[in-house]
């Protein structure tokens, strides 16, 4: 056997390194003592479009004050200066308002994409961003199926802006997120995901004429913390209904799982080929060196 100690050690080092770094996708929390994520149920039948939540959100997160309603033309999206917007949609059942913000997915693509865990799913459920870890690569923005992380392009010290469900400032203190607490129409409801889904079902069953039979966010992108109820099909509200129901991190699973095998098998194979072909050219060795 021509396998030298050094080569053996090289293969072992590569294997060890792979086993150390090539772990499973762990976007979901490991702690089994916290069984349920918190989320927010948004009921667009109850929402009157007062945009109070936009003002409360800006106030709670130190963002510029939202523009007055009379200046708004067309549909808006959250951006680096506003983490949430309320849009007005003309639908088959009249005017319907829809709130947009980060969906806080159960298995967030942004957190799986983040190479420093700056984006991370907390055990309570909110997906948060941590500036001391982020290197500003914006891979979270490429990966997010809802396009929710927003980047401050015009700052030398840019941050990623997105809804954190007021995780640091309120949830950890036992308070409700700013938008939920101040909603005058009870269109927003905070609770565990399970409670919210059964509450949403109850509303659908009690008033079947008022709601479509779908909870947006129950299955979309593997399920999300924010859940939506609507009087009209969600396409009419500009919601993306072409998303897959499997989680987005699952798309890279196959590739990442192949990495350890490649790291073990390929060096061994290469070394074998090298040994096998070496003897065939005994006279050409000194050709160039």
């Amino acid at each position: 056997m021509d396998l030298h100690r050094r080569d053996f050690l090289k293969v072992m080092c590569a294997t060890g390194l792979t086993l150390a770094t090539g772990k499973a996708l762990n976007a979901a929390p490991k702690d089994k003592n916290v069984p349920e994520f918190y989320g927010i149920l948004y009921d667009s039948v109850r929402c009157k479009g007062c945009r109070g939540c936009e003002y409360d959100c800006a106030d709670a997160n130190g963002l510029p004050e939202p523009e007055p309603t009379k200046n708004i033309k067309g549909l808006r999206k959250p951006d680096e200066n506003r983490r949430t917007v309320i849009n007005e949609h003309k639908t088959s059942k009249g005017t319907v308002y829809v709130k947009m913000q980060c969906m806080h997915c159960n298995e967030p693509a942004c957190a799986a994409a983040c190479l420093t865990q700056a984006m991370s799913k907390t055990k309570e459920g909110p997906v948060i961003w941590r500036g001391d870890k982020c290197m500003g690569c914006r891979y979270c923005m490429v990966s997010c199926p809802f396009d929710m992380p927003k980047f401050e392009y015009h700052s030398p010290n840019p941050k990623i802006q997105k809804c954190t469900m007021c995780y640091d400032t309120r949830i950890l203190k036992g308070e409700l997120p700013a938008c939920v607490e101040n909603c005058p129409n009870e269109a927003l409801m905070f609770g565990t995901r399970r409670e919210l889904i059964s509450e949403a079902r109850r509303r659908i069953y009690e008033k079947p004429g008022e709601y479509v039979e779908q909870i947006y966010g129950e299955h979309e992108a593997g399920g999300s913390g924010w859940l939506y109820l609507s009087p009209v099909p969600f396409e009419e509200l500009g919601m993306n209904t072409s998303l897959q129901n499997a989680s987005y991190p699952a798309l890279t699973k196959g590739f990442l799982y192949s990495v350890p095998s490649v790291f073990v098998l390929v060096p061994a194979l290469l070394l074998g080929i090298q040994q096998a072909t070496k003897k065939n050219h005994p006279n050409e060795e000194s050709d160039d060196e």
């Binding site: 799986a112 190479l115 500003g136």
Partner: peptide
Amino acid sequence: LGRPWNVINPIIGNNFGVSSVL
């Protein structure tokens, strides 16, 4: 990179985002 001063984070282990292709 928006925050290039943090570029060494994935190398020094603050924190390892091992589920990331990047």
